[in-house]
Nucleic acid binder design. Structure first.
Lengths: 257, 257
DNA sequence: CCGTTCCAATTGTCCGGACAACCGGACTTC
DNA sequence: GAAGTCCGGTTGTCCGGACAATTGGAACGG
């Protein structure tokens, strides 16, 4: 299978790769980022082989475990596929973005929709049984309640109701008119780790229809989400309603290897 | 931080762990499965430390890289959290199931709902522009069309329409009355790898309402999905409609580390 | 009493090597 | 010509070791 001189990625250039050993960035991470960029920009064609790990390691002056670690992160992202006895190749599909804990604000902004927010309520009140269960606190504990109306292009898109453990955000609530809740949480030093979601649909009540500019009984998309930080503590319980005529959830799944 | 004699997981038993070197199952996999089972069954309490990797390796007669590989798979699943200088601990949350490429059939069966299926159509026809685009074939190419009505407890739950590249399933279509599509695909040697989904809602048409036993204009949950195998080839395009009064999507997300 | 410095513990990164398992093509054989 | 066999190539698994980076508490000093 002479991969001697013919570069495995085809007749093009040998794909400039190299690591900076003086950088504090881990070597495997430098490599995986370069490979990801090459794939993203099409310099590594879908289906093309990557060249075997031993040679790659030798050419870069790295050890095989380090190269493997770099490749593995891309395999986990779904960009590469390894096959024993064959090699490692770029996946054929043109799909990207493996699915993140999506933030409506970021989604809209990324879509160029210039989101706006009207804060309807920002208060502390005792937790109901449902909220207490979701957040893992005792019923009646004081929690922060946030209700917002989210607009895109000046039109209402969704009604967002969130419950958070008291004291998580502090007095920064005012910033909610200008940015998304998840950004505020991140700014408060909270790193989101996982979330449990439930997506359904139902007909709009009279108030909801009025508020969102829909007809009575219009179909609405509902989403309930409990988000956890990296220690497993529940940091947010959201109960949201979207206009089905204007919004849908899009995401990509990866099957666990 | 003497972890000398006190077992890190608390006053209980030292947590029986051991690997079988004669088994063809990789050692790191044996270990990760045992740890996962222990976490799942609560023998490793949330928040408890796992004991440092060096000792663990020594006790099991394994090397540290092997132990790390086992732990890493559980970190990727979101069951464990590592912190340098601290240790590895079980995540606090009680959540499970990181989100799979969910199959309605499996979902219903797991919930003890005894799903049933009526195949409305199983035919070959030329691909429309929408289907051709989703499957990545030329418009007009012959594709397999499957339309099914899915029941649970004798009540209609959803109308499922799927398009597949011709010849993927062969004549096994009859089995669709007895099992799910994804199981058939797996049995045909296809390993699903990723999928792109879009979840929305809309009002039912007259026929849909009739077919699903809902009132006219009832809210329906819609899902479009294109699934890809491990080479990136599109193997299925589904266009499904669920009764919002009876079904909702539940899933868990992990933030990529 | 409080803040600072230091230190031990633990995970993070990286190396070099060894052998096994598997795939695909070439070759042989019938 | 078709089926089975062999073999080179590649990834999968595992080992043992070394040093760096970070954390949290303990000791120290103000």
């Amino acid at each position: 299978m002479a991969t001697q001189d013919a570069h495995p990625q085809g007749p093009g250039e040998p794909l400039q790769l190299g690591v900076d050993r003086s950088s504090p960035v881990p070597l495997y991470f430098q490599l995986s980022q370069q490979l990801e960029a090459a794939i993203e920009q099409g310099r590594l064609a879908p289906g093309s082989l990557l060249g075997n790990e031993i040679d790659l390691a030798g050419r870069l002056g790295l050890s095989r475990p380090t190269v493997r670690q770099a490749i593995q992160t891309l395999v986990d992202k779904g960009l590469l596929v390894r096959r024993r006895g064959v090699g490692t190749q770029v996946v054929h599909s043109q799909v990207r973005r493996p699915l993140e804990l999506s933030s409506l604000y970021d989604d809209l902004e990324a879509a160029g929709q210039r989101p706006a927010t009207r804060v309807l309520r920002y208060a502390a009140e005792p937790a109901t049984a449902e909220v207490a269960g979701a957040l893992g606190v005792a019923q009646g504990t004081e929690v922060t309640v946030i209700e917002r109306l989210r607009f895109a292009h000046g039109e209402p898109m969704a009604h967002l109701r969130n419950h958070l453990p008291a004291g998580l955000l502090g007095p920064d609530g005012a910033a909610l008119e200008k940015t998304g809740l998840y950004r505020l949480l991140r700014a408060a030093g909270i790193t989101l780790h996982s979330a449990r979601q439930k997506v359904g649909a139902r007909a709009a009540t009279a108030e909801e229809a009025e508020e969102l500019g829909e007809g009575p009984g219009a179909p609405l998309l509902t989403m309930e989400r409990t988000a956890y930080d990296d220690t497993g503590r529940a940091v947010e319980f959201g109960s949201h309603v979207y206009r089905a005529s204007r919004y849908a959830f899009e995401f990509q799944l990866l099957v666990r290897g």
